[in-house]
């Protein structure tokens, strides 16, 4: 049997190709997975879970995130309540350094190994870089946690500066597949995002790069996002489900169906067998408690605990109790997948 199995049933093909040989699904294969019927969903999730367990193991990476600079972003990502171009009620605000450290301490107290500092900007200016330098140093002096950052598009010098601060992972999402991207963002291009991702990878920082599903994209375009992420081979892929925000261009869309969201989780896992696949925004709304559990048994191996940037999450105790019940240990600080 070759790695590129030639069966007709996509789950049989995926079992042979991904589980047995570790070869990710290609775009058209991801599409076939996204098109499977609801009655195949339990088998699909079980297979994605087997793939996660074989290539990543049972541990779950726990992360907290905080917004260092909220709102007033000049970009126009149509899903985002922090864009200054829409009539969203989110106002601009900066977090001070003592509060940033407190947020990192709160996060570490949950057992989390990751703390990501996020800013709503096109890319960092000098003020933000100064805040980062001061903030990251203060966190590293006070809290035992890995510091990650998400500050938009970077220059080479900024990449180097973040490395020198000790930022170990950088988040920059593709957001959508290349063909749908112009419907989602008009103030910058897919290629500009791609360039920052490549620079981050080349720098030695870990790349965290994901996107959103449920933004009105076709299944073909959803599969395209998975395949393009696969091409980048990020260390981590955060998967967001659109949470339609009042005042944004996507504010009128309905949240995704739970079954579609679960199919997307499994499909992304089969396209990215060796990547940390994280629940990011929108899971409370789209999946609820039951779906959250199904996703953790269907390919997800990382979570965000506590609140998001502008919205609230579940009480971390509920998530930690669920991981405990599923016998999925929290990834330790210096453990690598």
């Amino acid at each position: 049997m070759t790695a590129q199995a030639t069966g007709t049933d996509i789950l049989d093909v995926a079992r042979e190709q991904v589980l047995e040989h570790g070869v990710p699904l290609r775009q058209e294969q991801v599409l076939s997975v996204l098109r499977t019927d609801d009655d195949r969903l339990p088998d699909l999730l079980a297979l994605a879970h087997e793939v996660r367990m074989r290539y990543q193991g049972p541990a779950v990476e726990v992360e907290g995130i905080v917004s260092l600079k909220t709102g007033g972003c000049p970009e126009d990502c149509h899903f985002c309540s922090q864009s200054g171009q829409f009539t969203s009620p989110v106002r601009s605000v900066w977090l001070n350094i003592p509060e940033l450290v407190r947020a990192a301490q709160q996060t570490a107290a949950t057992g989390a190994s990751e703390f990501c500092i996020v800013a709503a900007v096109r890319g960092p200016d000098d003020r933000l870089m100064r805040q980062m330098r001061e903030g990251v140093a203060a966190i590293r002096a006070a809290v035992d946690i890995n510091v990650a950052a998400s500050l938009g598009m970077l220059t080479h010098d900024q990449v180097d500066a973040l490395v020198s601060m000790g930022v170990h992972r950088y988040n920059h999402n593709l957001e959508a597949g290349r063909s749908y991207f112009p419907q989602v963002v008009t103030t910058h291009t897919f290629e500009e995002r791609w360039e920052t991702c490549v620079m981050v990878k080349d720098s030695g920082m870990e790349l965290c790069c994901g996107g959103l599903v449920g933004m009105g994209e076709s299944l073909e375009q959803r599969a395209e996002l998975a395949a393009q992420l696969g091409e980048l081979e990020p260390h981590e892929v955060p998967l967001n489900f659109l949470n339609p925000r009042p005042g944004t261009p996507f504010g009128h869309l309905e949240p995704m169906e739970t079954a579609d969201a679960l199919r997307a989780i499994a499909a992304f896992r089969l396209a990215l067998p060796r990547t940390i696949l994280r629940y990011a925004g929108g899971r409370e709304l789209t999946l609820g408690d039951l779906g959250t559990r199904d996703g953790l048994l269907g390919g997800i191996n990382a979570v965000i605990v506590g609140n998001y940037l502008t919205t609230l999450g579940r009480d971390p105790r509920a998530d930690l109790a669920l991981l405990d019940e599923l016998e999925m240990p929290i990834k330790a600080l210096n453990e690598t997948f």
Binding site: G64, I65, V66, S67, T70, P89, V90, R91, S92, V93, L95, E99, R102, A103, Q106, T107, E284, L285, V305, G306, N307, Y308, L309, T310, T311, L312, P316
Partner: peptide, 25 residues
């Protein structure tokens, strides 16, 4: 309100600045 902090002052209807952190707003 279970998944969002308030955005408007209930007394004067001004938009508030709202900072969300992992464990509070």
């Amino acid at each position: 309100a279970e998944l969002e902090p308030p955005r408007w002052c209930v007394h004067c209807r001004r938009r508030m600045t709202v900072q969300v952190t992992p464990g509070a707003w």
